[in-house]
Design a protein around this nucleic acid. Structure first.
Length: 720
DNA sequence: GCTTCTGTTCTTTTT
DNA sequence: GAACAGAAGC
């Protein structure tokens, strides 16, 4: 008997969901029900006992996607799927390594470090190798090391090639050493190490291959080389692989993702069946036609054309703003107009290429009294004060963690300065010891000046005391204890941190709350086991990006952050060559194509209305410059676009001035809407003002020369 | 050890 | 324009 939920799918979706063969690639266009197919396929596999939940492995890229998938399945099937492996590549790798730490050559208490910790370690290495900061940046080394790891290459696997590489290799080796001594595992290492574990251990590999009968991967176009190999290790020709992805939405090439992995599947897996989902359920015909037209300019695509049964809908709206301020006003006006039409704020999104664009938009939304929320920014567990506490905890269960040692040894200040630290580092380096060991030895053998030795000694016994408490207290109590015992609360309450005091102290309390919550799902909340679990969880999921405000808000985010989301109304702004496509990506064809895919992603977020805008001049990094409309705009067929006209610009300007109290549409005797004559540009109309006082600029729409921003001091305008 | 000055850089970001 | 890092100054 067929499960009833199959009737909710279209013919092709159903074909993908019930495909009986063993290797399947679903090429799913934007809005074609990609996640739905994945979830339904798992549900189908589980129904009629085709497969047991524990024999399924489902891989996603973000924790959010993993949670959503599990949640949707549990709702659909009305049962708990605790035994099913659903998670991110990193989360699943971590699970494997915790289970098989010994075989993987790790210690049981290994810790996960995030990119910031990694960078700190690298900064230390650069310092100790006396590298010229101008030439060698720790950031670069980080890219190098992670790049190598993502290709599965260890330092000993690299032959000496050139001078540059020679130095990087030295850094890579030093880094590996610090990580292995400190028992630290970075994000790339999680994947690499678990891959090596499986590859080097046939018994283990065969066990997992036999265990995971079905492997399903979401967003396959975002996999990098290591992730591909990781899957390949778990999934040979006798397993069943389902990969879902869209090569047109591959926008993470710059961090190693290779949509070529989709083509590689075709070579590596026999009888790969390719199913294309092209019916779009999200957008109107006009929006799809425009998006299709843009993406058609890319070469080397799998090829896919979205269609819809929905009507054409409204045309796309294009607004040529005078500058970024005018654009922001247009956006605020557009949002307000939509809201008057009855569209909820939360159904609208303003998308931009880079975060720097958001500031001016926020400003105008604020002026117009429109509430908004921004996706992105620092997450809870990435905050300084939180990471400080976590470093104490990490050091308590893993004293050889040099990164954490350096972070907290003098925080709050306890008289352990740069000089004392340098001798510790030096001792550690020459005797191959961790900073903790170096400190112990140097204090005992009195190799340090008295004051420093005393301070260090006190720090060491402080840490010993914390370590002793770990087994006595439960997680939340332990954290409270640490915060107070080491003096972090007093530290952040100091007058020099007055600016952050409130939020920092609140965050410390919030950390305790988070610990209490985590304890709810723990078998044992006391001791190092519970702490271990908490620390790993925190590194792998660094917490919510935004507060769940109950109020309806406009969504502001970068194009990258918008992937996977949809909104009734989308404003895609900053459509200028140099900004989007970004200058950095305009040279290479591959980079430009990725930008175009980003444009495609942005456009296909819109369900009903899509507004595009660009500014004729824009301040970037403090300097104003003229801009050309984005080449992507030219790739949209003209008949799909409607240009917003000057009339509305005046209205916008007027509305804005009215909001300020009505007196701002007159400046220095110049009035909004007034006709003027300029010696060079001829006749024009005043459409707005920027700045004030001696910096006042008048925005004039000239009959023959378009928009100009002029200073009335120098422009010598004649009124008439 | 802490504050202030100066110079430098500047897409996109998850784990 | 602003955020951050390192150097200089107190």
């Amino acid at each position: 008997m067929e499960p009833s939920f199959l009737s909710e799918l279209n013919q092709i979706q159903r074909e993908a969901v019930t495909y009986p063969g063993n290797n399947l690639l679903v090429l799913a266009g934007a809005g074609s029900g990609k996640t739905r197919v994945l979830v339904y396929r798992i549900a189908w596999l589980l129904s009629n006992n085709r497969v047991n939940a524990e024999n399924i492995l489902a891989v996603t890229f973000t924790n959010k996607a993993a949670h959503e998938m599990r949640g949707r399945l549990e709702t659909m099937l009305r049962c708990s799927l605790g035994s099913m492996w659903v998670g991110t590549f990193h989360g699943l790798s971590h699970r494997l390594l915790r289970r098989h730490w010994q075989e993987a050559g790790l210690e049981e208490s290994f810790q996960i470090i995030d990119s910031e910790d990694q960078l700190r370690i690298l900064r230390g290495i650069h310092r100790s190798l006396n590298l010229d900061l101008e030439r060698w940046s720790p950031k670069q080394s980080q890219l190098y090391i992670n790049g190598k790891k993502e290709q599965g290459i260890r330092s000993h696997g690299i032959g000496h090639s050139n001078f540059m590489e020679e130095t990087w290799l030295k850094i890579y080796r030093a880094y590996e050493e610090i990580c292995s001594r400190g028992n630290l595992v970075d994000f790339a290492e999680l994947l690499l190490r678990s891959h090596e574990l499986l590859r080097g251990n046939a018994a283990l590999r065969d066990y997992y291959r036999g265990h995971f009968r079905h492997i399903l991967v979401d967003e396959f176009q975002d996999t990098n080389t290591m992730q591909y190999l990781w899957i390949r290790e778990l999934c040979d020709d006798t397993s069943n692989l389902t990969a879902v992805g869209d090569d047109d939405q591959s926008i993470y090439g710059w961090r190693g993702a290779d949509s070529g992995n989709m083509k590689r599947l075709d070579r590596d897996y026999q009888n790969l069946n390719v199913v294309r989902l092209e019916q779009n359920y999200r957008s109107t015909g006009n929006i799809l036609a425009a998006a299709n037209a843009v993406i058609a300019h890319n070469g080397s695509r799998f090829g896919k054309k979205l269609w819809t049964e929905r009507g054409q809908g409204d045309p796309l709206v294009l607004y040529a703003a005078f500058n970024e301020i005018d654009e922001a006003k247009y956006l605020a006006n557009g949002v307000a107009t939509m809201a008057e039409k009855g569209v909820a704020l939360s159904d609208m999104a303003i998308l931009y290429r880079s975060n720097a664009q958001s500031r001016i938009i926020e400003e105008k939304l604020l002026e117009w009294g429109l509430s908004y929320r921004i996706y992105g920014g620092i997450r809870f567990f990435e905050r300084t004060e939180i990471k400080d506490v976590l470093a104490y905890l990490r050091l308590a269960i893993n004293p050889h963690d040099d990164a954490s040692f350096e972070r907290v040894v003098n925080l709050p200040t306890r008289g352990i300065g740069e000089v004392a630290l340098a001798s510790l580092r030096n001792y550690g380096k020459t005797h191959d010891r961790s900073l903790w060991q170096a400190a112990k030895i140097m204090v005992e053998t009195q190799q340090l000046p008295g004051r420093a030795a005393g301070a260090l000694g006190r720090f060491l016994s402080l840490m010993d005391e914390i370590a002793a408490q770990v087994s006595l207290l439960d997680l939340a109590t332990l954290i409270t204890y640490v915060i107070n015992f080491v003096g972090l609360r007093d530290h952040y309450a100091k007058p020099q941190y007055a600016e952050y005091k409130q939020s920092r102290l609140e965050n410390l309390d919030e950390l305790v709350t988070a610990a209490k919550q985590a304890m709810g799902s723990m078998v044992e909340a006391h001791g190092s086991q519970g702490l271990q679990t908490f620390l790993s969880q925190v590194s792998l999921e660094s917490g919510e990006r935004l507060e769940g405000s109950g109020e309806s808000c406009v969504n502001l985010m970068t194009l990258h952050a918008a992937k996977g989301l949809e909104f009734r109304s989308v404003f895609l702004c900053g459509m200028e060559d140099g900004l989007f496509p970004h200058v950095m990506s305009m040279r290479e064809r591959d980079d430009l194509e990725e930008e175009r895919r980003l444009c495609y992603v942005g456009m296909t977020r819109a369900m009903q209305w899509l507004h595009l805008s660009y500014a004729e001049s824009r301040q970037i990094r403090g300097v104003s410059s003229f801009c050309k409309p984005s080449r992507f705009l030219r790739e949209i067929p003209g008949e799909l676009l409607r240009s917003e006209t000057l009339v509305s610009k005046v209205q916008i300007a007027t509305k804005f001035e009215e909001d300020l109290g009505g007196n701002a549409n007159e400046c220095n005797g110049l009035v909004l809407g007034q006709r003027v004559f300029h010696g060079a540009f001829g006749e024009g109309t005043i459409v707005g003002f920027e700045g004030q006082g001696e910096y006042l600029l008048v925005k004039i729409k000239f009959r023959d020369y378009g928009n100009k921003l002029l200073s009335p001091k120098y422009a010598n305008l004649k009124l008439y």
